[in-house]
Design a protein around this nucleic acid. Structure first.
Lengths: 107, 107
DNA sequence: CAGAGGCATAACCATTCGGTTATGTGACGA
DNA sequence: TCGTCACATAACCGAATGGTTATGCCTCTG
């Protein structure tokens, strides 16, 4: 019984797939052809990755004629960030970093 | 050439392994035997997971006699949270959530 | 010093995964 | 209407992954 986090982490764990997602984040909505150019893999591979990203709710698709436009769904990342930041001790560590930074700035 | 994020995401993408890490976060330092009890897999499997977690700098080990104590290294999660929060649009989405929340509280 | 405890490693196996090429399907243009 | 374009799906393949059992290596203890 894979939960939310499983799917999220698994989906993002592949570099090619994460690359596609990042590109959608940075450059906005894209067609499959546009994404394939620069993905470094074949079009069917890109389609499969998009299918998995969609299954993880990380992207949404919009069909328009014979093109399919994909866009990133950043809301899906929330559980990931929450998972990390809610682990006891995460912010402690970050505050230590901040303290170090302030100390260095003080010198 | 796998980068920081690759290793992090890949390491955290397995539920068993992430479970071990979470437990180290919540319950603090543990021996391998303690972790094996409740991991749902054999001791060698746990050892292998710990090896990968260590390789990702997510845990540190401390040998003491014939026991090996592992503890979580939360600092290693920083790149993951930074990756997500630095994607353009991530905070926008969160602010929308906040807005919704405030609206609901207002009623 | 012998035996047992705690852990890591080796060797192996089934499954999953990410990629490919080939093909199907619906929409567009001549 | 026919050929082409954009994309999805099918079928397949090698490599990686996560698990197992067996075993080795220290370390503690009687």
């Amino acid at each position: 019984m894979p939960n939310d986090h499983d799917i999220l982490f698994k989906t993002l764990s592949d570099p090619t797939r994460r690359g596609i997602f990042e590109r959608l984040c940075r450059e906005g909505e894209q067609t499959v052809a546009a994404l394939t150019a620069g993905a470094g893999v074949s079009q069917p591979a890109v389609s499969k990755h998009l299918g998995l990203l969609k299954q993880a709710s990380l992207v949404r698709d919009r069909r328009q004629g014979r093109e399919t436009h994909y866009r990133a769904e950043l809301a899906a990342l929330t559980p990931l960030v929450d998972w990390a930041t809610q682990l006891p001790g995460f912010w402690r560590n970050r505050f230590d970093d901040l303290e170090d930074l302030l100390k260095r700035m003080d010198q």
